[in-house]
Amino acid sequence: MGCGYGRDSEFLASLGFEVTAFDVSPSAIAAVRERYPDSKVAYVVADLLDPPAEWRRAFDLVVENMTVQALPVDLHARAIARVAWLTGERLLVLAVARDEGAAPDGPPWPLTPSEVQAFQTDGLSAVRVRRDEVRWTAEFVQQVAMN
């Protein structure tokens, strides 16, 4: 999500994953398609806050790499819920870390401990949550039966 220049998407595809990458910006998707014209990645224009209904738990692995933190703090809870909603099996969250308290001027708006824990929704449970001085690395797995 928020695939930007496509680096993460192309890396995952190079590892053998079947990758769908999306961004809300049509110009970003056009640019990444131009950058990687022979890509196996499915680049799609889509909004994290309003994704296609058929994407519910459609992805075995979801990689959330600094997308939520790019959104204003008042959108974090909604975006976190949607990330979880997309996750069929496993979620990897990578983000800049900050302590609880007043939101900094941004962007970005780094994630707090409570925001990282909030990914434990819609059946997701934390497997590993690690914070160094500046960054979160968190892994969650789906614990409920899929319909």
Score class of each variant (00 low, 15 high):
T121C: 10
P51I: 12
A28G: 15
V83F: 12
F140L: 05
E54M: 13
D23F: 03
C3D: 01
P113H: 09
A79V: 04
D132S: 10
A145C: 11
L124C: 08
S9H: 01
V144N: 12
A30F: 06
M66T: 08
T67S: 14
L48R: 01
A13V: 03
D8H: 05
F59S: 07
T112P: 02
A145D: 13
V62W: 00
P51G: 08
A58G: 09
S27L: 11
R57K: 10
V129P: 00
E139F: 12
Q120W: 05
M1D: 12
V129L: 08
P107V: 11
F11C: 13
A58T: 04
R78A: 15
T137R: 13
G2D: 09
V24Q: 06
A42N: 14
D105Q: 10
A70P: 00
Y36V: 05
D50H: 09
A58H: 03
V127D: 15
S39T: 10
N147H: 12
W85K: 02
Q143C: 10
T20Q: 11
G88W: 01
D60K: 04
R33M: 11
R33F: 09
V63L: 07
G88Y: 05
G6R: 00
R98G: 06
T137E: 13
S125N: 14
A118P: 00
R57S: 15
V24T: 05
A102P: 02
L75R: 01
A84T: 00
P52I: 10
V41I: 06
D122F: 07
V96N: 13
L111A: 08
I29P: 02
E54V: 14
A58N: 03
V68S: 02
M146S: 15
V127E: 15
S27R: 10
T121L: 08
L49G: 08
A53D: 15
L61C: 08
V129S: 08
F140N: 01
Y43I: 03
E18R: 11
S27F: 11
D74P: 03
V73K: 03
L94Y: 05
Q117I: 07
R98S: 06
G6S: 09
L71N: 02
F11E: 08
V144G: 14
Y5N: 15
P110W: 04
P51Q: 12
A81C: 10
F11I: 08
V134S: 09
A138R: 00
L91M: 05
A77N: 04
R7T: 12
